[in-house]
Design a binder for these strands. Structure first.
Length: 240
DNA sequence: GTCCTGGAGT
DNA sequence: ACTCCGGGAC
């Protein structure tokens, strides 16, 4: 009921970065190039997503991939985490967490105390949980609840930056500028569906990599400022 | 040794 | 807005 932020007018309607045809190309690429095998995508409940995103925070997906099935089996909900806290801490420590795992226990206690042990879908309620910021809140809402969201993380910031050719500083991911830039990735500039957001994340990690981006394997290279530049350059100066 | 990543404290 | 956190990959 109260969605209007205090931003004066503001709606300048971000122009979409990707046309309908390029979104179609991304979806085609995603069918074969997406990381559909990631275990937290198989059974994407709000709890599983919250757990997975917490684990993924500071670790690579490969490392969590092996640990995740065991953890979800051992801890199917916040009650299990609270009940066997030391087991949780020990198990998650091997993934390279520490204080984050402790924070997660606090979040689980709040889930039990204030949300009947269930992960809430409201953004404000999610953000109120310890260790849950904008990224995890959006991920839980989108991947866990199926609500279209703009996922702002280093991957989508990098995508937006390279496609538009506009430099974006990832450290300012909370700034309005970056939020809008990432939002413009969505078809018609709106929040994307879970599948589309998975596609963006996979494209970012597998093709639009931090180092050595695979421009030639990119389904949207023709509309990407960075891709166009590189490919045009290679036409005259290939070699090396 | 350096960088990486999102949240929180300052 | 800036800085720290903690382990792994390189």
């Amino acid at each position: 009921m109260k969605k209007s932020r205090e931003g004066r007018t503001a709606p300048e309607g971000e122009s979409p970065l990707l046309s309908r045809e390029y979104w179609a190309a991304i979806r085609v690429w995603y069918k074969s190039g997406g990381r559909h095998h990631l275990p937290w995508r198989q059974n994407a409940t709000p709890w599983n997503i919250m757990l997975a995103e917490t684990l993924l925070h500071r670790t690579r997906a490969d490392a969590i991939q092996v640990l995740y099935p065991r953890i979800t089996e051992e801890f199917p909900g916040p009650a299990a985490i609270v009940k066997r806290e030391s087991e949780w801490l020990e198990m998650s420590r091997s993934a390279g967490l520490t204080w984050r795992a402790v924070t997660f226990v606090s979040a689980c206690k709040e889930l039990l105390a204030q949300h009947g042990g269930l992960v809430p879908s409201e953004r404000e309620a999610l953000l109120a949980l310890p260790g849950v910021g904008h990224y995890i809140a959006s991920a839980v809402r989108c991947f866990g609840f199926g609500i279209p969201e703009v996922i702002v993380d280093s991957n989508t910031i990098r995508l937006s930056s390279r496609i538009s050719g506009r430099a974006l500083v990832a450290s300012r991911h909370r700034s309005r500028e970056v939020q809008k830039a990432v939002a413009s990735l969505g078809e018609v500039g709106r929040p994307s569906s879970p599948a589309d957001n998975y596609a963006l994340l996979d494209l970012a990690t597998k093709v639009c990599r931090i180092t050595k981006p695979d421009h030639w394997g990119c389904p949207i290279r023709a509309t990407c400022a960075t891709g166009k530049h590189v490919i045009a350059g290679s036409a005259s100066t290939s070699a090396t």
